[in-house]
Design a protein around this nucleic acid. Sequence first.
RNA 1: GCCCGCAUCGUCUAGCGGUUAGGACACCACUCUUUCAAGGUGGUAACCGGGGUUCGACUCCCCGUGCGGGUACCA
Length: 495
Amino acid sequence: MSSALPSNALPERVDLPGRRRLRFAPSPTGELHIGNVRTALLSYCLAGEDGRFLVRIEDTDRERYQPESVPGYLETLAWLGLQWDEGPDIGGPCAPYTESERLPYFEAAVERLVEAGAAYYCFCTRERLDQLRAAQRTAGLPTRYDGHCRTLTAAEATRRRELGEPAVVRLLVPAGETRWDDLVLGPQLFDNETIDDQVLLKSDGFPTYHLAQVVDDHLMGITEVVRAVEWLPSTPKHLITYAALGWEAPRFAHVALVLGQDHSKLSKRHGAQTVREFRELGYLPEAVVNFLAFLGWSPGTEEEIFTLAELRRRVTFDRLQASPAVLDQQRLDYLNGVWIRKLPAEQLALRIQPFLPEAAPEQLIPIAAMVQERIRRLDQVPGLLAFAFSEPEPGADFLRGKLDPREAAAFLQDIPPLLGTAPDPAAEMMDRIRSLAETHAKGDRAAAKKYIRVLRVATTGAEVTPPLPESIALIGAEKAGRRIDRAIRVLTEAA
RNA sequence: GCCCGCAUCGUCUAGCGGUUAGGACACCACUCUUUCAAGGUGGUAACCGGGGUUCGACUCCCCGUGCGGGUACCA
């Protein structure tokens, strides 16, 4: 509770920048999930170019709190390009942006609610609550607090608190019904009978997110709250709290969940799920953003490749989808390939570097050029280029393929003179190799391919590689020559 | 149990009463080609079921079913 904020003061909300103000309020309990990031992306986009996107840290659960996850969250958002206008690191007109530093606001709000009779102290024990719920369940009733402490007098509550009895503060849900027009789901109606007297302030003095979200969203001037449907049932509680505090509620947009391939909620067994994992697999932020945007949104046209900036201009509430989406990694792979091919070679080289630390700096741009249209993920680069960074030793049978070993060796004998002629354009080198192969194949073009294959295997040890001239250039003419010599030796011995 | 949400090809989606139900991924052919890719061409593939409403339902309403979420002093 170390805070510079004045105690028990609930400030008036001031004029805040931005036509729209949307926030992303993650709870620091580990790593950002792909689903979390999608709502962050949506919020960022929906704020629009003339709006503000803020990040707030919802660290009200002291048991699950992992302080070291905050820098990771910010780094992830930055990696994706979701630049925030206000946040815990950069501050802003509503600082602080970390809820644990805003306790006085929540205390003040609670005081106001209790005084207004909209909330009350509750001393019920865990055991009593458990029994209550079990009984309600067997009776076929909604499980909810029975209002046992609702009738406590203020004096009684104060006395028990002063005696040190643990207490929480609960929202007093009035009779009636609660409705709102959801920006994604349309008109919503909840019978207040089914809404629980939610705990707003825990016995440790921290607010639950129900209180924290309401107070902070109001104080921070949030205009639209974008969150996953898992929050839908708690929205009435929030609306009741806003009303009790005399505040106008923001508009709500509940977006559908992202599901795993088996249609269940995304979890560990679905493979990659945190943004860090996708990043380590070699996905580009451009592709992740593009992909995520289409989980629950579409432009209504047949366009499908969008930059983040374009998305920010195009994404609107009325085109958000209400049905859940299954994460299809094959489609992500495809989009990633598209984005890899869009990158200038120098840019791609920079992105490849971490995946290929053994490459010399001057090799990276040629490498980028030769892998650009053959990879869908950056982590495929080392495999594709293994021949350049290790010494392959193909055996005679593999080398000769369907050729007579003597004929294969004879063809390879004629290659070295072609290698020294660099810096030839790749196309010219390939022309010479091809015509040489055709000569050995006596004009049979199909047979010529078998000779070219021998050269490929001899120099790279693999049947599938990037184009030969580029591959040989990467290996280096000298080293390629040695590999050819070795292959000739192996083939001759086998003959 | 109780409350709530969703429902078009395998997947992401377009559609907002009258369409040969469109696109993309994946898949299959063919093509291009030094291998692999990338590219090009073509193809297979969908309105969950039943009732209404309507001259006419993928589109609107109801029921069912399925899937999902919530039901905490977690978010």
